[in-house]
Simulated scan of single mutants.
Amino acid sequence: MEAQALATKMLTMQADAGLTIAMRMPILLKGALGDSHGQREAAKALSEKVSAVMESGLAASQAAAMFWWGLALNPLAQVDFTEAVAKVANSSLEPFAKRTRANASRLTGRARKR
């Protein structure tokens, strides 16, 4: 179940990221030529990536810690390591998915469903 959610999230992120890149490139090119809007967009892109990396690391650590704590508190429980790994990966991708979804919506000027 978690692995299926991970696959869905990755496919959605790929579509949103491609759309974001396509919409951002002309804006960033103008920024390289001195346009202030393009320069703000570049700064926004950079700060989003730094904060997403920080959030992603924290989310992955938290999901992994919850798994190991659950195992330590109930050592006889049946464990599906594949699901646990998928849950950690899913948690670590969420900060990036949230930003790519928001950027695709913002740059295309339309509201997108989650």
Rank of each mutant, 00 (worst) to 15 (best):
M1G: 02
M1R: 05
A3S: 00
Q4N: 12
Q4E: 13
A7P: 01
A7M: 01
K9P: 02
M10R: 04
M10E: 11
L11E: 04
Q14S: 03
Q14L: 13
A15T: 14
D16E: 13
L19W: 04
L19M: 13
T20L: 05
A22T: 13
M23G: 10
M23R: 10
M25E: 14
P26L: 03
P26E: 06
P26T: 09
I27Q: 15
I27K: 02
L28V: 07
L28S: 14
L29M: 08
L29G: 11
K30V: 08
K30C: 12
K30P: 01
G31S: 06
A32F: 00
L33K: 13
G34C: 03
G34R: 08
D35Y: 01
D35P: 01
D35G: 10
S36R: 08
H37Y: 10
H37I: 15
G38A: 15
Q39K: 13
Q39S: 14
R40M: 08
A42I: 09
A43D: 15
A43Y: 15
A43T: 15
A45Q: 08
A45E: 12
L46Q: 09
L46I: 09
L46M: 11
S47D: 15
S47V: 14
S47R: 15
E48W: 05
E48N: 13
K49H: 10
A52H: 09
A52E: 11
V53Y: 02
V53N: 09
V53T: 03
V53E: 12
V53G: 06
M54A: 10
E55F: 06
G57L: 07
L58W: 00
A59W: 06
A60K: 07
A60C: 07
A60E: 03
A64C: 15
A65S: 08
A65L: 12
M66D: 10
M66T: 13
M66N: 02
W68T: 12
W69Q: 11
W69T: 09
W69K: 05
W69R: 09
G70F: 09
L71T: 11
L71G: 02
A72P: 13
L73A: 09
N74Q: 15
N74D: 15
N74E: 12
P75E: 11
P75F: 14
P75Q: 00
L76H: 07
L76N: 12
A77G: 03
A77L: 07
A77W: 08
Q78V: 12
Q78M: 05
F81L: 10
F81M: 11
F81P: 00
F81I: 14
F81S: 07
T82K: 03
T82M: 02
E83H: 04
A84L: 09
V85F: 10
V85Q: 10
V85N: 01
V85R: 02
A86H: 09
A86K: 07
K87C: 12
V88W: 04
N90H: 04
S91M: 06
S92W: 03
P95N: 04
F96C: 06
F96V: 08
F96Q: 01
A97E: 03
A97F: 09
K98Q: 12
R99K: 11
R101G: 07
R101H: 05
A102F: 01
N103T: 04
N103K: 02
N103P: 01
A104R: 02
A104V: 00
S105Q: 11
S105E: 14
S105L: 02
S105G: 13
L107E: 04
T108M: 01
T108N: 05
R110K: 14
R110P: 01
R110V: 15
A111R: 07
R112C: 01
